Amino acid sequence: MTRDIARPGATQEVHVTVETTIPEDGIALFHRLYEEAFGPLRTKAIARQVLHRSEFREEMIDPRVTKYVARTGDGEPIGVTTLTRHLETVPWISPDYFAARYPEHAARNAIYYAGFTLVAPSARQGAAFHAMIKSVVQVLVAERAAVGWDICSYNNTQLSFADSIRAVLDEQANVEVAVEDSQTYYAARFTEDGATKGG
């Protein structure tokens, strides 16, 4: 299923299609976009930020995961945001946490998770990011939903993703945003060639 959401008035002509599945013959193109955007995070974050190719394909063909695809005027995809209310499709989160935290939303099946948002590096200064988030927000507002997402430290400190998302949310809706959790990763480097102190 595909729906088209026009975004008139943007400096770069962008429209957003809402798609439940990406055809097999289109997945390679979307994977290239994904690798361009997320590939560098392999060496920037300790937690794995990049889906394996097979995992990416599963998300693209899973109708439970809605894809908001930003496209240029000639139909070329330049961005993707994934959104699902089927939290079991997001292996790195705990659906039980969200059900306990938002019981009223859980009863209405109105808890969502935004899996990833990417914009092709060549289009990062354009309207694609804003258009996709705005499309997602329309759904969340209509359902009075709760939604979770995660951002690695690198994307926050270097690319200000949290600030960008918050700005779009505040522009579009009355919304309360809070940091829900964090995980700190540690590393130790041993320097005495295996020798132990006091031995």
Rank of each mutant, 00 (worst) to 15 (best):
M1V: 13
T2H: 10
R3Q: 14
D4A: 12
T11R: 12
Q12N: 15
V16K: 04
T17R: 09
E19T: 11
T21E: 13
I22S: 03
I22V: 12
E24Y: 07
G26T: 13
L33G: 08
Y34A: 00
F38M: 11
L41S: 02
L41T: 01
R42W: 00
K44E: 11
A45E: 14
R48N: 11
V50Q: 02
H52K: 13
R53Q: 11
R53S: 10
S54N: 14
S54T: 15
E55A: 08
F56C: 04
F56T: 03
F56E: 04
R57S: 03
I61G: 04
D62C: 13
P63D: 12
T66P: 08
A70M: 08
A70I: 08
T72Q: 07
T72N: 04
D74I: 00
E76P: 01
I78C: 05
G79P: 10
V80P: 05
T82Q: 05
T82C: 08
H86Y: 15
E88H: 14
T89G: 01
W92C: 09
I93V: 09
P95I: 00
A100I: 03
R101S: 06
A107E: 12
A107P: 04
Y112F: 15
A114Q: 15
F116E: 03
T117A: 08
L118C: 07
V119I: 11
A123G: 06
G126A: 06
A127T: 10
A128L: 02
H130M: 08
A131C: 06
M132P: 09
M132G: 06
M132N: 03
I133D: 04
K134L: 12
V136K: 11
Q138P: 02
V139W: 02
V139F: 04
V139T: 15
V141S: 06
A142Y: 00
A142R: 10
R144Y: 06
A145L: 06
A146V: 03
A146E: 08
S153V: 15
S160M: 15
S160G: 14
F161C: 09
V168N: 00
L169H: 03
D170C: 06
D170V: 10
Q172N: 11
A173M: 09
V177N: 06
V179C: 14
E180F: 08
D181G: 11
D181Q: 14
S182R: 13
Y186R: 03
A187T: 10
A188V: 12
F190N: 12
G194P: 02
